[in-house]
Design a binder for these strands. Structure first.
Lengths: 229, 229
DNA sequence: GCAGAAGCGGAGCAGGCACTCCGGTTACAG
DNA sequence: CTGTAACCGGAGTGCCTGCTCCGCTTCTGC
């Protein structure tokens, strides 16, 4: 269940090597690790998270055994990919926070985040799986949310965004847009931008109407992202 | 593949039946048909469309063989359920069209439609499957869309809704809200209303911003609902 | 009450999946 | 070059699906 991705090769077999330091992967193993990641990225992005592992092995030009040696579980592989995406998000958020036009920065961050999910079906699928239960990912997710929160504060202060929403709201709305966008993407590429536009207009202060419910608490959000279903 | 769901209740039981028409189901078969539908409704609503057929049989108190005799395919069973939901939608739309407050009527219709998906996970799952490729469902879907279109026209004329959206937009936004809402529903029941509120505010004229893309064409919508993925 | 048709149930089938296991191969230290 | 630990590949396993098949049971018209 909680298999660690990295090869925790334990105490060195015959030699007097220190048990503490894990030694480096062999060259071919390193190559394969990279190949698998790359292939998984491509396959999951196009086919979604339900793509079979054999397909990834095939795409990477290695045997399935090799895939599972590098990533003991399908989930481990997915987590590795989601982690990359998360880091990209943090980076983008950081850039948005550096801008001096809070409204525009906010909107283009959101747009970028949506596009990320549109272009990577697997990433979109991953959200809402019990995936974020894992400590490592939860931490990353919190980082994103915290930055979005700051981004939001600035945009609200600039009267570019309604004042009754929180960071989690943005992420949820985002995911909703991506989900619907993906339904249409094959037949009408780019229409997701239309729905993102509608969603963003809903976040503007001009049309703001009292929301019927309070924002979900952090625990509720975590439980959701982590999925109980 | 194209099995008819309804139990062609034909001529009166005891009477002289024509050889051509298929006669009525036996009493126990009718009972089981109803039981299966009921069970499927309940199971799919709670667990989503991926719930195994055996579970439905169990829940209905019949063998799997019986389930598959009534509904030769899992998809047939799902279609039967979706059809019911569609008819409910048409009904609700009709009621909304009869109201003399176009804005309120529109919003409460949308709210009802969202709730329908929230309360029936299976129905929500069904949308975006290639399900709507089937003629029978497509027709029903068109009926819903046409009514939503009229509803929309009235609301737009009353300046309660922005003028640059079409019926399909509403349905897509709706589904997006439902999808996100379902993620949270277990941990924070009812929060979907918050996101529906945000979405509805995005449809108001006050904050309307030029949308970056044209609305999807009918063909594109059908292809989407019908699913290419 | 009595055929016999209609219906029932659930063992079994086929297929797809994540994951394992082990004989053979390869990289690399000495 | 050589020994060996690390690594590779892919046939195989176990599990879970949707769906079928057929001997048995139940309803129903006469």
């Amino acid at each position: 269940m909680t298999a660690s991705i990295e090869r925790a090769k334990g105490a060195a077999p015959g030699s007097a090597r220190l048990g503490a330091t894990r030694h480096q992967l062999r060259a071919d193993a390193q190559r394969n690790h990279a190949r698998v990641l790359e292939a998984a990225r491509a396959v999951f992005a196009e086919q979604g998270i339900d793509a079979p592992m054999t397909l990834i092995a095939e795409h990477a030009g290695v045997g399935i055994g090799t895939v599972f040696r590098r990533f003991p579980t399908k989930q481990d592989l997915v987590v590795a990919l989601v982690q990359q995406r998360g880091e990209q998000l943090v980076e983008a958020a950081e850039a948005a926070l550096a801008s001096d036009k809070p409204g525009d920065a906010f909107r283009s961050f959101v747009s970028l985040a949506a596009e990320q999910q549109i272009r990577d079906r697997g990433f979109c699928d991953s959200i809402g799986t019990q995936l974020f239960a894992r400590e490592d990912l939860r931490e990353l997710f919190d980082g994103v949310r915290e930055r979005v929160g700051r981004m939001l504060d600035r945009a609200i202060e600039a009267r570019e965004v309604r004042s009754d929403i929180v960071a989690a709201d943005v992420l949820f709305v985002l995911h909703g847009v991506a989900r619907t966008g993906l339904m249409l993407e094959d037949g009408a590429p780019g229409v997701w931008r239309r729905y993102l536009g509608l969603a963003l207009d809903g976040l503007r202060p001009e049309a703001a109407t009292a929301l019927p419910r309070k924002a979900p608490t952090k625990r509720q959000v975590d439980n959701a992202a982590c999925g109980g279903g």
